[in-house]
Amino acid sequence: MSGIALSRLAQERKAWRKDHPFGFVAVPTKNPDGTMNLMNWECAIPGKKGTPWEGGLFKLRMLFKDDYPSSPPKCKFEPPLFHPNVYPSGTVCLSILEEDKDWRPAITIKQILLGIQELLNEPNIQDPAQAEAYTIYCQNRVEYEKRVRAQAKKFAPS
């Protein structure tokens, strides 16, 4: 494992614990031996107030490669969400998460999670990743928002 990646992720964890947006979660997972795995984080993004996503808490896994922060983490909703920019596998399609697009090593975990929260309610229809959600979003916004509200209710924190 890269010392650069681990040191950056340790800084990220410290900064997150000191200050993070209300309702968001970002925690490194534990290895079988109980030690912390900084390369694999369990996160959760709350649906934004005043949107059909409100009330939901959407679980996301963030996986970092050894060359982080040169390369972005892979962000994957578990379980996958109904959304035009979420692949059926759950992987998020967002330009700041793509090395050859808008990724920059200075982007923080907090910025990534806030960017994904923004994307939930403002899909990028130029870059669809899920045919069904994309089609319904474009053709029947009322039905799309109904499905999103049902999903938010399903993923409401207990």
Score class of each variant (00 low, 15 high):
1 M>T: 00
3 G>R: 05
4 I>T: 01
9 L>P: 02
10 A>G: 06
10 A>T: 10
13 R>G: 00
16 W>R: 02
17 R>K: 12
19 D>V: 07
20 H>R: 08
20 H>P: 00
22 F>Y: 10
24 F>L: 04
25 V>A: 10
25 V>M: 10
26 A>V: 03
27 V>D: 02
27 V>A: 04
31 N>R: 07
32 P>S: 14
33 D>G: 03
33 D>E: 06
33 D>N: 07
34 G>V: 05
34 G>M: 07
35 T>P: 04
36 M>S: 04
37 N>S: 13
37 N>D: 14
38 L>P: 09
38 L>I: 09
45 I>V: 15
48 K>R: 11
49 K>A: 13
51 T>A: 03
51 T>S: 12
52 P>D: 09
54 E>V: 08
55 G>Q: 11
56 G>F: 01
59 K>N: 12
59 K>E: 10
62 M>T: 08
63 L>V: 14
64 F>I: 12
64 F>V: 11
64 F>S: 00
65 K>E: 15
65 K>Q: 14
65 K>N: 15
67 D>Y: 05
67 D>N: 09
67 D>V: 08
67 D>L: 08
68 Y>H: 08
68 Y>Q: 01
68 Y>R: 08
68 Y>N: 01
71 S>P: 06
73 P>S: 05
75 C>R: 01
75 C>K: 00
75 C>T: 02
75 C>P: 14
76 K>I: 14
76 K>E: 14
77 F>S: 03
77 F>I: 05
77 F>V: 03
78 E>G: 13
79 P>L: 10
81 L>N: 00
83 H>Y: 00
84 P>S: 00
85 N>Y: 01
86 V>E: 01
87 Y>N: 03
87 Y>D: 03
88 P>L: 14
88 P>S: 14
91 T>A: 15
92 V>N: 01
92 V>L: 15
93 C>G: 03
93 C>Y: 04
93 C>W: 02
94 L>P: 00
95 S>P: 03
95 S>T: 08
96 I>G: 05
100 D>N: 13
100 D>Y: 15
100 D>G: 08
101 K>R: 13
102 D>N: 05
102 D>G: 15
103 W>G: 05
104 R>M: 04
104 R>K: 10
104 R>W: 03
105 P>E: 12
106 A>Y: 02
106 A>P: 05
107 I>N: 14
107 I>C: 15
108 T>I: 14
108 T>Y: 15
109 I>R: 04
110 K>L: 05
110 K>E: 09
111 Q>S: 15
111 Q>R: 15
112 I>V: 12
113 L>S: 07
113 L>Q: 05
113 L>T: 11
113 L>C: 13
114 L>F: 10
114 L>I: 09
118 E>K: 08
118 E>N: 10
119 L>G: 02
119 L>C: 05
119 L>A: 02
120 L>S: 03
121 N>E: 11
121 N>G: 05
121 N>Y: 08
121 N>T: 09
121 N>D: 14
121 N>I: 09
121 N>P: 00
122 E>T: 11
122 E>C: 12
122 E>R: 10
122 E>G: 07
122 E>I: 07
123 P>E: 01
124 N>S: 06
124 N>C: 11
125 I>W: 08
125 I>V: 10
128 P>S: 12
128 P>L: 01
129 A>G: 04
130 Q>H: 11
130 Q>R: 08
131 A>Y: 12
132 E>L: 06
132 E>S: 06
133 A>V: 05
133 A>M: 03
134 Y>H: 05
135 T>M: 10
137 Y>N: 01
138 C>Y: 01
139 Q>L: 10
140 N>T: 02
140 N>D: 14
141 R>I: 09
141 R>W: 05
141 R>K: 10
141 R>G: 06
142 V>S: 14
142 V>E: 15
142 V>G: 12
142 V>F: 10
143 E>V: 07
143 E>G: 06
144 Y>T: 00
144 Y>D: 10
145 E>Q: 09
145 E>F: 08
147 R>G: 03
147 R>L: 13
147 R>S: 14
148 V>D: 00
148 V>I: 14
148 V>A: 07
149 R>Q: 13
151 Q>R: 01
152 A>Y: 00
154 K>R: 13
154 K>V: 13
155 F>C: 10
155 F>S: 09
157 P>S: 11
157 P>A: 13
158 S>P: 13
